[in-house]
Every structure is written in C-alpha cells, then in structure tokens.
Write a protein that binds this DNA or RNA. Structure first.
Length: 800
RNA sequence: GCGGGUGUGGCGGAAUGGCAGACGCGCUAGAUUCAGGUUCUAGUGGGGGCAACUUCGUGGAGGUUCAAGUCCUCUCACCCGCACCA
C-alpha cells in the first residue's frame, strides 16, 4: 500500500466525524470510562506540540477503552478567560470575544488534524454565557454558605498586570503571568474560604490514585501542622498574647517572645510602650520589604525589644521580654511565637545576636554550639523532667495547659484563603451588588448570567481598578433586596474559576436548568483518569477539588472527589534542549509536522520520545524513524496472505499483545511502540504474515496511529471501523516459546547460551548445560561447589 | 534548610536481583537509484586480538549475594517542589 498520509488522514477524519463514532452515550449498559485532559487556554499563537503530548496519553487509553467495549467520554473544551487575550485586545483593539473565537477555531482545527477522538459535541467554552452563568451560580452558592468574604489585607499585587494575585499565583515572589516582582499592597479583596476545606482536601488524598509527587505537593501546600495555642499574660494589661507552637513541651525553655512587626497588640498599647519611636522605625523598614525579601533564608536576624510590655510565663509566672522581628509572619499562626532558643535554629540565632538566655530543656545536643532539634530526655522542665518521648511530653503539656485554662491543642495550615478576584475585563463578573443599606447583596439566581457589558477600552485604570468601573450603566443598579440605588461589584473572577468545574459541564454541556443533570452526573462521575501538567497541582487541581467538595456538600454532585486518578505528562523541549517558548524561537507547530510527516507519525513520535512523564527534546530525525516504521507497516498490507497463525510468529504476537496492553495502562507508551517495532522486525525476519495476524497488529497500532490503521483495516476487506474493532487478546501460555535460550554461567559469568525446552526442571537444565560443548571443556577438571538454576532464565555453576 | 526525583553508549532511552544497552536516531561499509534528507543489507559501548576469544564497563567508594544498573551504607552532581510555617 502506498502510504499517502495526507489523503488517508483526511479521509478517515471525515468518516469518523460523519459516523459520529466518538460521541459518548449518556445512558448505556456498557461500563463507562471518563478520560479527562486539561483543556487548553486558547492563546493567539496556536498550539505547540506540547499540547499534543498532553492529550496523546489519554487519547491512546480512551481509544483502547472503546475497543475494549467501554462507553467512553473523552471531551475537550477551552479555558478562554484570562489576561493574555485581554492584553492582546488592548494592544490590537480587537475585542477579546473576537480574539477568543478566532483562537478557539485555530486550536480546534489543529486538534482535529491530529485525529484526536474527542467528543466534539460536548465542547465547552468558559466564556460562553451558558457556561459562566453556572460559574456565577456556584459563586453565589458559596456566598450564601459563608465561603465568600471580603477583606482588606496585604495582598500580592503585580504592578505590571495591575491585578491582585493569589498566593498560588505569586510563588517565589514573581507574577505567574508576566514574571514581574510582586509587591505587597493593602487592598479590598474577595476571598474564597478554601481553608475551611483544608483538612478534607488533605484527608481526601489518601484513597486517591494520584502520582506520588502530585500527592506530596498537595500535602506540602496544605501544610498541616499539629501543636497547641498558648495564651501568655501581659504585664499590666488585660489582653493575652496568644501564640502557636508545635512543641508546647518546650515551654520551660522559653526565654523570650517574638511578635510580627504588624501585630495589632503594638497599636493597642502604644501609650504603655517606652520605645514607640524605635519600634515604628523598625516596622516601617519591614513594610518596605517585599514578602520575598523578608522570607529570604540565612538572613541576619533583626528586631527590636519592646520596652514597658512583657509576657508572663503561664506556669512559672516569670517575666519574659518581647521583641518584634520580621522572622515572624503575621500570616501564619497567631503572628506571635514563644521562642525556645535552645531547640530552634531561628530562635537560637536571634538569642545569640540579642544576648538572650538559652535554656536547655531537651538533652542530646550541645547548646553552646547550636540549637538542638532532635529528641532526648526532658530536663529543667518541672513535671516533664524525665520524659523521653516527644509525643508523650507534648500530650502531657497540653493536658496541663488545658487544666490551667491557658492553652489548648490546635492545628495550623500553611494554605491561605484564595484571593478570588482580578481588576480586569475578560473574566466572569462577580455577581454581587453593594448597597448602602443592605451591604453586599447577591444578584438573584434568575438574573444570571450577569453579562459582561460592552466596553470600548479594556485597559485597567491607573489605580488598578477594573475597566468595568468606568461603565456607569453597568455599575449603577438597584439593590435586589431593598430596591434602593446600589453599585455593582466591578471585579471579575480569576482565571481559575471556570476551570474549577468544567469536567462537570462536559457531562451535560447544554443544560439550561442546572449545571448538569444529576442522573448523568451519577453515571459519569468520578473522572476515571485525569492527565495534566505538574504546574497545576497546587492551583487548578486543588481549587477544583475544593469546588467539587463544596458541590458535594450541596448535594449537586454524587462523589466527594472529582478525579479518581491523576497523572502528568512531561514537557517537550525544543531541539536545543531548552523549554519551548516564542521568545527562544524553538516552538514546533503541530500543523507543520502533520503537513510534512502526517498526524500518525506525529502521534507515534510524541509517545515514543521517552518516558511519558519526563521531559525530552524534540528531534526531527528521530521522528523520521517513526515515519519509517509506519511506512513499513503500510507495506505489510500487500504482503499479508492467507489466514491463521504463522508458526514462527505465534509467540511474538502473543507477547506483543500482552506488552502493548499492559504498557498502555501504565502509560509506558514508548515501550509499547518499541514492542510493535520489534514485532515488525520479527515479521520481516519470518518473511510472511497472514491477514489475521496483520489485523491483530493493526488493532494494536490503532490507538497510536489510527488513520493508517483504519486504511489497512479497510484494505484487507473489513467493513467497520478499526477504531471500534475489539481489542486483541493474548494467551499467557503462548507468550513464551517452546524452546528458550538460557544463559549458562560459570561463577556468575556467562560462558554459553543453551537452548532448553520451556520449563525444564533443575536436573534437566543442569544436564543440558553440562552437555554443552563449551561448558564441558570449561568444567573439565574443576570442582563444582554450587549449582543454581532459575528455570527458563539462567544456569550458574560455581566452581573452584 | 526540608521534601521528592534523576544520573546507563555519540543521542532519545530499554532492562519482575538473572545474557546491560531492547527499540529508535546517528554513524560506518556495501547495494539500489539520473539524483536524493529514498530504499535495502551488514556492522556499531571502550580496550586488546586476524580470529575463536578476552578484559573493562550503568556518577563515585564500600557492602550483601552464586549473581547488582536494580538491594544496603556512605558520597558527588544535576533537576523539581516548599521554604524564617513557629
């Protein structure tokens, strides 16, 4: 067969579409499989081959599932709200709606040319009214349930994008969108109370089949710690100084306290403090630093002692000095700590610098030299003396604190509430009205969607306010509650909003009564397998788990967790080994590859490059090898003759069917393809192949290279689609040939290879090994010390 | 600093403790072709040998084992995540 890939691919893509064979059925007796890939952000520059890799993994799995008889839902959509499109609109003057439609059209065309088996009837676009209406609906439900709040706080602000960013979006002190330095700014912002779900987001991970490092990153991000809150009395005032510690059992080692510079106690008792001016100067200095500068490690400890205000030890009653220092953060715990310099590195450094006492309470280290954070016997600790187990001493101390009424056990999370707004145009409007009498009032559900108004100028205001703020007809409205004059919220939701629930909408994309039909949700959920990038693990993945749990609590979705299994693909690097990017000019456009080599070659190559989860550089010459492989397979169509089994190939076929079947499940696509290449080499060596055998090979190949598979399938007289043909089966017993080549060693070094019948027992194997000409000569005159036989694998004779 | 991961030919990468380097690229030689970024055949880890063969070899050093890329101890390098988290 001539491998005219351009025509073949066009032909089959049209036939698939016409026959609608990739549409999922909503009510069906077959077992269901819901495979999900992270939907793309439709940028102006189109897709690059990295997108193709991200979808190719589950494309193969989904295609295999269909052939195995599953009812498969494998959808695609577009996460289209966001800054890049808006920035491009500002630059070009073209409306983001127009740009988005244009970009979606381009992305769709690219995806279709690759022949992905997506269900194109279920495409969702997060910027469509019918979609964002339900994003707003979920927001209002959260508002109703107390999970939305507004707060004036120091926030991460990107001066370049002019938006407030969540912690997740400003990791490392850089803006995730433009990589500028983040500054801290006091602003009124919307928050989603994700911390209310912190414990469940953590415990829910246990039973999920997520990649270990995905789980680990989420655990780390949630950052649960257990310990205790302790209230220290202050000299001469009513208020207590509340602190959080993970080691309450070191309470007798406390020699000073530290508060964050922003701690409110300072403002409250200004008149009692002798050195207010000095403290103010220090606080001002800290305020100027970015969060990033403040959290630089190995930095010299700085701080100022508060004169005129001290803490009292809750057990001994001893007076303890208080300092302010920027090594304590207002945002974690209570913003104040008890310092135990003997057993905490940071406290130790501070104590050394400021000449504070260091009292050892755990034996085992040398506190003259450094802080000791290890385990050991408790000393200088009253009722804790003699304890050697950390767990016991902590429990005892908490018991005492609770008895005395000065503290209690508690947990803390590193995770913070989710800053949930952008002062930008291209996002879902937040459906809230500010009324002078009623305060914040929800837009009534029946008024959803709250549409984005038409705007002339998309640029954010100089003060960082949303472009919507300039539109009087949008801003001015009546309060839904009292009917009085009110003003609409003008912030929009962050990009992560729409993507937090899109997998639910695929299940019922056109529903106008609810976000998705409960019966359909019951049938399709949970997502059986979700694949995406590692960069979304501490954002999208955790956000969407939060939303899903909330919807579960509302009774909207039937499962507590959205995704049963989560894997991740590795990057495709440019030919230069660098990350693909427009600025480096090393981006590979899938359309160019499809034109020159065909979609099947592109698909096979992307999965053959290396381990699916690892990064690998693009190599056009390597890809040519995959094209050669498909050329050779195409050539078999003319060679195949007769039916039944070719004796020389039987084992090879069974072995390959097994290998490919198992490898796909483990995403070991590279070795699955290698196994098919090996089989092809075996077929060439055998010099013959039957039509039956060719059909087996073609079905194995179909998930990877479906167009050529269909073409060959048709050429051997099959009437239906290869894409729907049954997946080949294998017989375990026939995966090993009747005669096996067994390596024969002397003292662990291979000296010969001997053919033996499969499953030969120890005596037979030894006899055969010793009968071998080479072995006989080598063994002559030697004393045999030990003989080891692993059936079908190895014979090792130890001699002296 | 803490946590996780990775080190194998010229390159991408294979190897349930059992013949290291599957498969592919590249390279070498030969054939086919007017030509070729074509196709086919053979070879291809290093050293030694005409050869059968021999020896060394999975970042480094030890160890366990009949047998180690794989298990254990130490160590080096690189990558990723979190990072003054109390």
């Amino acid at each position: 067969m001539k491998y005219d890939f351009l025509n073949i691919e066009k032909k089959w893509q049209e036939r698939w579409e016409k026959a609608g064979i990739f549409h999922a059925k909503d009510h069906d007796d077959r077992k269901k499989f819901y495979g999900l890939v992270e939907f793309p952000y439709p940028s102006g520059s189109g897709m690059h081959v990295g997108h193709i890799k991200a979808y190719s993994g589950l494309e193969v799995v989904s295609r295999k599932r269909r052939m195995e008889g599953y009812n498969v839902l494998f959808p695609i959509g577009f996460d289209a709200y966001g800054l890049p499109t808006e920035n491009s609109a500002i630059k070009t003057g073209v409306h983001p709606r127009v740009l988005t439609d244009r970009n979606i059209a381009k992305f769709s065309q690219q995806l279709k040319r690759v022949g992905f088996s997506f269900d194109w009837d279920r495409v969702v676009d997060t910027t469509e009214e019918n979609y964002y209406r339900w994003t707003q609906w979920i927001f209002l439900k959260m508002f109703e349930n107390g999970l939305v709040f507004r707060d004036t706080a120091l926030v991460n602000y990107c001066p370049s994008c002019k938006v407030v960013l969540s912690n997740e979006d400003s990791q490392g002190g850089k803006c995730d969108i433009c990589h500028s330095d983040i500054v801290q700014k006091s602003k009124d912002v919307w928050y989603l109370r994700i911390t209310a779900y912190a414990d469940r987001l953590l415990s829910g991970l246990e039973d999920l089949d997520y990649l270990p490092n995905v789980k680990m990153q989420q655990v780390n991000w949630i950052g649960k710690s257990t310990g205790a809150f302790v209230n220290f009395s202050l000299t001469g005032v009513e208020d207590k100084l509340r602190i959080y510690t993970t080691r309450p059992d070191t309470l007798f080692g406390v020699t000073f306290m530290v508060m964050a510079p922003e701690h409110p106690v300072l403002d409250k008792y200004r008149d009692r403090i002798a050195n207010v001016a000095e403290l103010d100067a220090y606080r001002e200095l800290c305020a100027k630093k970015t969060e990033f500068e403040r959290t630089q490690m190995n930095k010299d400890k700085t701080g100022v002692r508060i004169e005129g205000l001290a803490a009292l030890h809750p057990i001994t009653g001893k007076e303890i000095p208080i300092y302010i220092s920027d090594y304590v953060m207002m945002g974690y715990g209570t913003g104040a700590i008890m310092a135990v310099p003997a057993h905490d590195e940071r406290d130790y450094a501070f104590a050394k610098k400021f000449g504070v006492d260091i009292v050892e309470v755990i034996k085992g280290g040398d506190i003259e030299k450094e802080a000791y954070a290890g385990d050991g016997e408790m000393v200088n600790s009253d009722f804790l003396n003699g304890y050697t187990n950390k767990k016991d001493s902590i429990a005892r101390m908490i018991e005492e604190l609770e008895k005395m009424g000065v503290g209690e056990a508690g947990v803390q999370f590193k995770m913070k509430d989710w800053a949930f707004n952008r002062q930008r145009y291209w996002g879902e409007p937040i459906p809230i009205v500010h009324c002078p009498c009623c305060g914040m009032v929800a837009v009534p559900y029946e008024e959803l969607p709250l549409r984005l108004p038409p705007v002339e100028n998309f640029a954010p205001g100089e003060g960082g306010e949303s472009p919507l703020a300039k539109i009087d007809s949008f801003v001015n409205c009546k309060c839904p509650k009292c009917g009085g004059d009110a003003k609409r919220e003008t912030d929009t939701m962050p990009q992560w909003a729409g993507s937090s629930w899109y997998f639910l909408r695929y299940i019922d994309p056109l529903n106008s009564d609810c976000l998705a039909d409960p019966e359909k949700l019951k049938y399709w959920l949970p997502v059986d397998w979700y694949n995406g990038g590692m960069e979304h693990v501490t954002r999208h993945l955790i956000y969407s788990r939060f939303w899903h749990k909330f919807l579960y609590d509302l009774g909207v979705v039937p499962t507590e967790e959205p995704y049963a299994k989560r894997t991740a693909q590795g990057l495709i690097l440019g030919p230069d080994g660098q990350k693909m990017s427009k600025s480096r000019g090393n981006v590979v456009d899938p359309n160019d590859v499809v034109d020159a080599f065909g979609a099947d070659t592109l698909r096979v190559y992307i999965l053959f490059m290396g381990e699916y989860g690892s990064a690998a550089p693009w190599s056009e010459s390597s890809m040519r090898g995959c094209k050669r492989f498909l050329d050779r397979v195409a050539g078999l169509a003319d060679k195949a003759k007769g039916t039944g089994v070719t004796a020389a190939l039987e084992t090879a076929f069974h072995r390959t069917v097994k290998k490919v079947s198992l490898d796909i499940e483990e995403m070991k696509f590279n070795t699955a393809i290698a196994a098919m290449m090996t089989l092809l080499n075996d077929i060439d060596a055998a010099g013959a192949i039957t039509v039956d055998e060719l059909k087996t090979l073609v079905r194995l190949l179909c998930p990877f290279a479906p167009h050529i598979a269909e073409e060959i399938w048709e050429s051997v007289g099959e009437k239906g689609f290869c894409s729907l043909a049954p997946w080949p089966t294998y017989d375990e017993a026939k995966t090993v040939s009747a005669t096996v080549e067994v390596a024969v060693q002397i003292n662990g070094k291979v000296k010969s290879v001997v053919a033996m019948p499969k499953g030969a027992d120890k005596d037979t194997a030894l006899a055969l090994a010793k009968a071998d000409e080479k072995m006989a000569a080598l063994l002559d005159g030697k004393t045999v010390v030990k003989e080891i036989v692993v059936p079908d694998k190895i014979v090792n004779i130890v001699v002296r």
